[in-house]
Design a protein around this nucleic acid. Sequence first.
DNA 1: TTCGAATATTCCTTTACAGGAATATTCAAC
DNA 2: GTTGAATATTCCTGTAAAGGAATATTCGAA
Lengths: 125, 125
Amino acid sequence: MRRTEEGGRKADSGLRRNDMDEGHTELFSALAEPSRMRIVALLREGPLSVGEIADRLELRQPQASKHLKVLQQAGVVEVQAEANRRHYRLRPEPFREMEDWLAGYRELWSDRFDRLDEYLRNMPD
Amino acid sequence: MRRTEEGGRKADSGLRRNDMDEGHTELFSALAEPSRMRIVALLREGPLSVGEIADRLELRQPQASKHLKVLQQAGVVEVQAEANRRHYRLRPEPFREMEDWLAGYRELWSDRFDRLDEYLRNMPD
DNA sequence: TTCGAATATTCCTTTACAGGAATATTCAAC
DNA sequence: GTTGAATATTCCTGTAAAGGAATATTCGAA
């Protein structure tokens, strides 16, 4: 099969607000794997080729490719072809999305919520 | 087996800084499941019993219990027993941890980094 | 046009995990 | 103690996903 260069990024256009919570499962799933987490951490330093990633993380090349594919489908990384090499880099979007998602829980550790929490905890049935 | 009430929270005391990235895989894994994500979203409103959670999300009770167990082991929720009922509530810690983790990537979407990104993208080999 | 490097893909096997159904446990009330 | 409600656990089964090994594809260079 001809390899398509445009990247398999899943369409993220038509997300209604209610789908958001479930919509992040692919992202979390992609990050819920030690090797992929290490890849993401490594790519913080900048774009790297598959071989470099495999070397630095002591992964076999096929596994590195597979993990990168998963990360790409989740929108975490994007690829740029250059001759034989593929340079993978982090995409900022998923991190922004995660930040937005997290924001919905930020009241959890605010002082105000801590007091409400305490209140409910001691509430009689 | 006797059910222990103290909760199976995984020890999070001795985390060296280098384990952090991999250390979050359990958390991401717990959230990488639609039903659990919905449970977490639901618990934002406040503590709920297993039955209430199962009802509101149209889950069967055993599945609800299982998901809550996973969430508990990941430290996402804690339980408070009250007679027959178990009241599950969100714990703020994992959200704080995620916020910290995310902070390490925040430069990704800063203006400064965007320019660096652009620079590297157009870099000759 | 053949070769070697870089990367992707396929096939296979093993393991983790989710859902369903049934059952066990715990507790309060009687 | 027996019962019923609330919850947890076990067993089973299907499925998705990860790693290993082998192979296919692509490209630049000789």
